[in-house]
Design a protein around this nucleic acid. Structure first.
Lengths: 153, 153
DNA sequence: TTGCTTATGCAATATGGTTGCATTAAGCGA
DNA sequence: TCGCTTAATGCAACCATATTGCATAAGCAA
C-alpha cells in the first residue's frame, strides 16, 4: 500500500502545506518541517542551527544538502527570507503572511553575535536614484546586549 | 645594513603612518599599503578584491594570510570597518577620521551583487531597550540597479 | 648596533556554501 | 488503485572563504 501525502488535520500544518502547494511546489515532509521550524523560531536561524535542531528531533534525519536546497527553495518561493548576518553566514526567517515587508530593525551584538529584534518604527522607504528598483530594506544596528555589556564592566 | 622604517615625506602616507603608530602598532609596509588602499577605494572591498589589487600592483606581493591579518588588525584598531555583505563575504572600508559613524545607506543589487551608496538622510538613532549599548548602524536596502532592471525587462 | 617583541610567510585546517548524479517519492491521469 | 512523469532527496564530491600554528623576518627601543 502506498501512502499519499495528504492534508494534515493540524490547522497550522495545513496552512503550511497550502502555502507550499500555492507556491507551485510539491508538499514534502522536508519542506513542511523546515517551514514549520522557521515559523516557530524566535530569531533568524542559520543552516547549522537548523541542522542541529533537526538532529535533536526524534523524527528522521535530513541530509545537509536537502536542508540547503529546501531553504533555497523556500527563499525562492518567497516563503522565507535569507540574509547574511554580521558573521557572514546566511540566516533564514519565515516570511510574514502578506505585505508586511520585513521592515523592522535588528540589533546584532558585537560581543556574542546574537541577534535581537527591536520594536521601533521602520524608517521611511528611501527615494532611489532613477532607474533603481526597490526590493526591501533592513536596518542593521550594532551594539552590545546587556549580558555582554556587563561582562566587561 | 639594516633599513629602518622611517617617516614618509608624502603627507597622505605620513598621516596613515601616524594613525597606525597612534593605534599602538608597528608601522609596516603591509599595513600602510592596505590602509592606503582602503582609503582610496570608492566602495567596500572584500579580501579577494584586495588580493587582486595587490597582485596587479608592481610592488612586492603579499601573502593571503598577511592581508587577512592586517585587515583584522586594522579593524581591531578601529582604523577600518568590517561588515558582511549580502553574499556573506566580509567587506572592508577605511574608518572615517572621527565621530562620523558610518550612518549612510547602501543599496545592494540582488541581480549583480553590486553595492551602491545612496545619498539620503541617515535614519534617526534608535532608542534601544534598557541595558543595550549602541555601537553603530547601517541601513541595508535591497533592490536592483538600472542595468539589472533592464536585463530582464 | 643589539635584542626583544611583533608581524609576516608558508602550510595546513575548518567552515559554510554549492553542484552532479543516481535514487526515491509526490501527485496527476487512467 | 495503479502506473508514470517529473520534481525532490541523498550521497559524494568540490569550491571558496575564513582561520590557526609555527618558523622566520623585521620594527623599534635601549
Amino acid at each position: 500500500m502506498r501512502r499519499l501525502m495528504k492534508h494534515s488535520t493540524d490547522p497550522r500544518i495545513a496552512m503550511i502545506e497550502a502555502a507550499i502547494r500555492n507556491a507551485g511546489g510539491r508538499v514534502t515532509a522536508s519542506r513542511v518541517r523546515l517551514l514549520d521550524l522557521l515559523q516557530s523560531a524566535r530569531e533568524p536561524l542559520c543552516q547549522t542551527d537548523i541542522e542541529n535542531l533537526i538532529e535533536s528531533e526524534p523524527l528522521p534525519a535530513m541530509d545537509r544538502v536537502t536542508i540547503y536546497r529546501v531553504l533555497d527553495w523556500l527563499t525562492e518561493a518567497g516563503l522565507a527570507h535569507k540574509a547574511a548576518d554580521g558573521r557572514g553566514v546566511f540566516r533564514f526567517t519565515a516570511a510574514k503572511p502578506e505585505g508586511q515587508h520585513e521592515q523592522h530593525a535588528h540589533l546584532r551584538c558585537t560581543g556574542c553575535g546574537g541577534t535581537f529584534c527591536l520594536d521601533m518604527a521602520p524608517p521611511p522607504r528611501p527615494v532611489l536614484p532613477r532607474g533603481f528598483r526597490f526590493g526591501g530594506m533592513a536596518l542593521d544596528i550594532r551594539g552590545e546586549c546587556p549580558r555582554c555589556v556587563g561582562a566587561h564592566a
